[in-house]
Design a protein around this nucleic acid. Sequence first.
DNA 1: TATGAATGAGGTTTCATTCAT
DNA 2: CATGAATGAAACCTCATTCAT
Lengths: 230, 230, 230, 230
Amino acid sequence: MDGRGEDGAGGVGDVGGEAVKVRRKRMPRAERERQMLDAAVRTFGQRGYRAASMDEIAELAGVSKPLVYLYLNSKEELFTACIRREAAALTRAVRGAVAPGPADRQLWDGLRAFFEHTGRHPDAWAVLHSQARTVGEPFAAEVNALRAELVAFVTALLAAAAREAHQDPSLPDREVAGLAHALVGAAESLAGWANAEPDVSAREAAATLMNFAWAGLGDLMEGRRWSPPS
Amino acid sequence: MDGRGEDGAGGVGDVGGEAVKVRRKRMPRAERERQMLDAAVRTFGQRGYRAASMDEIAELAGVSKPLVYLYLNSKEELFTACIRREAAALTRAVRGAVAPGPADRQLWDGLRAFFEHTGRHPDAWAVLHSQARTVGEPFAAEVNALRAELVAFVTALLAAAAREAHQDPSLPDREVAGLAHALVGAAESLAGWANAEPDVSAREAAATLMNFAWAGLGDLMEGRRWSPPS
Amino acid sequence: MDGRGEDGAGGVGDVGGEAVKVRRKRMPRAERERQMLDAAVRTFGQRGYRAASMDEIAELAGVSKPLVYLYLNSKEELFTACIRREAAALTRAVRGAVAPGPADRQLWDGLRAFFEHTGRHPDAWAVLHSQARTVGEPFAAEVNALRAELVAFVTALLAAAAREAHQDPSLPDREVAGLAHALVGAAESLAGWANAEPDVSAREAAATLMNFAWAGLGDLMEGRRWSPPS
Amino acid sequence: MDGRGEDGAGGVGDVGGEAVKVRRKRMPRAERERQMLDAAVRTFGQRGYRAASMDEIAELAGVSKPLVYLYLNSKEELFTACIRREAAALTRAVRGAVAPGPADRQLWDGLRAFFEHTGRHPDAWAVLHSQARTVGEPFAAEVNALRAELVAFVTALLAAAAREAHQDPSLPDREVAGLAHALVGAAESLAGWANAEPDVSAREAAATLMNFAWAGLGDLMEGRRWSPPS
DNA sequence: TATGAATGAGGTTTCATTCAT
DNA sequence: CATGAATGAAACCTCATTCAT
């Protein structure tokens, strides 16, 4: 969905034995910008925000540094653009995968889509998950927006499930938020696990999470809860 | 003839004004080292590994930069020392809180201790959770050791619970690892949530997590599992 | 938000005073690189490798430090480049001065060229002779290459002289190497002497060395040698 | 003659399994100073003036840094003291080896002593030859004194040889100085050669130099000289 | 006498950013 | 549209030197 090209367009064409600098092909702005973002996501994802250098990004994109500045103004804005683009892509993938139906089916589909997307775009996932957390202030907004989006999605699901059970679980908003955080955190951790262990499929990760969490959520939906001793 | 530091006794005595630098307070090495680690944890936790500067750390510790290098050799070793110290403190806190007894009681106690510790030392938690993941190679070992420690702890708990239920759940190692990752990830996420929302107590976070996870774990222990549709 | 270099167009225009920094003069890379090497040779020659600072070199070259690093990568590589350039210049001067002819004439011509070159480029000579010897490993290769070049030149000369005398001097390689070292050392020392005493011409230095060494070499070539007493 | 002890006195005595800092033995000042100079010569000889650190020297001497400063005031003075001591040792060795007798015998004996001494104390030789030349001003005096001493010695030899030949060679002072420089330079170069090639004896180096130089010197003493072509 | 504790100053190197073409 | 040339600022790290005990 975002086409991280291994090469980009242009670069150095080694024609017939001598390195020849080819005239960079003129390209429409949108496409150039996409190339830059691709390179930036890859670099930020692998090195981190501070350790990534604009030099490396420009080189990977196959353009000169001033062009990056011309289009994206600053490192900060470039990183913000990365977060925004990748957050949108992730939520689009998850939302696009769920269809009307029973709640557990919806959750299952959403989780599978989530693990599939993060597995297919590990650098993008690293940008969203690890890197964007380490840097202070300026990016919090973007990342919080993503998290809020996911939490809202899960919250809606839970509410629907409750209605479906013809019960008023009367779970306070605050508890729902806590549960959503727990679910998202578990999913994030499993995404990292699945990326690190090469033979764990998205399906398996999703099943693990359903097994882990669905029973508890179901109980809560029906008013049963675990009570602390004494 | 190099003539550095002609000024004799260290310290600028601004007579009659303010900003009288005192410095040169002698302290035993161990204590100074502790101060430096405190400052480093705070700075690394708030700024991140790359963005934290040795200057800032030294100033926060109330010493000059060369002293930090004299005692801790390099930024990398300083960060490693931080991780090691804080990881040890966290696991000590958790392990120290659980007593023999039923499995859910043990998990409940451990979780409360976990949330209490991370709540009380947010910078240390940030170092362990967010920051140590961003940077590559050199620190992976330390952080993995912590995660492995926690996973081992949880795994032992689950195994004990299974025995307690007089059942052979025959959960394969790999599934147990996945569940442990999910649990730890959920806990990590809730720790961040509890730190961000100021009036969420450690107890509430722990209860939320127990509600979220205990039913599913119990089901699995007794051989019941959620099965995917189709 | 990092906000470095807010001041816009580089250069401090001290209106109405003096010290108007011009800078930002664009030049083709090759020429700038030459300027930098000139400055580096001068600085290294006068201060030595360790004592020379990149700051001083950059200033003498009339550029900023980062540009030096952009073009020459590191202090070590910069020094290596100096050695290589100056060694090539010196050997070119010497080899270019000798023409086919009798051996003593060849040696005489070569020596004059040697003393003329070292006299005209004392800093370059200092880099090659004094400075490059002090520092360890990394530069040994370059300097040894120069010395080997000179020794090879002298060795060839001696062999030609032997043939010329229609004799097989049967000097073992090892003795030839020793003699060449002695000759080169004497030349080096005389070069220093000629540079220190301002009114010693290259011609005089060369004549002194011929007087000093030619008779002994001639004797050896014809099989006569000095024998130690007892 | 200067006893570079491998250990010095004191240090860390590993008694019975735990590293135990032993109380440094009180020692008479002269001996302590000798230890420090030994360590300094070794370090300066191997690393060079700038690259040698007072830390390393103090550690190698087995004392604390402030003690070095107490006794020798500064790095500069320490280096000066090294040069002075080693120059004196070298000239003592050479002068002590020559006995009244024919000139070539005297030169032969002196050269052998020279090569023997430099071979036995390579670090001291490195300090005198390589290192002392790279640094500017402050040490020139010391090194020049050594060179002048050697040149004077050789000059006296040559003059004696001339008298011995019952001739007035009427070599001008300046030419004698040039020849002495050539001889000393050749000797220095051969000293380096002999140190680098491990199986070249002092005797062989001296013989090589006699073969190289004696015939020319003899010729000059008797008024014969090489004349440049044209 | 001897040392552990401490620091000012300066070293090399990197990086985000801009200007002139 | 696109880039080669250039730099201010700050990062990590080292070292000669001194003070208080």
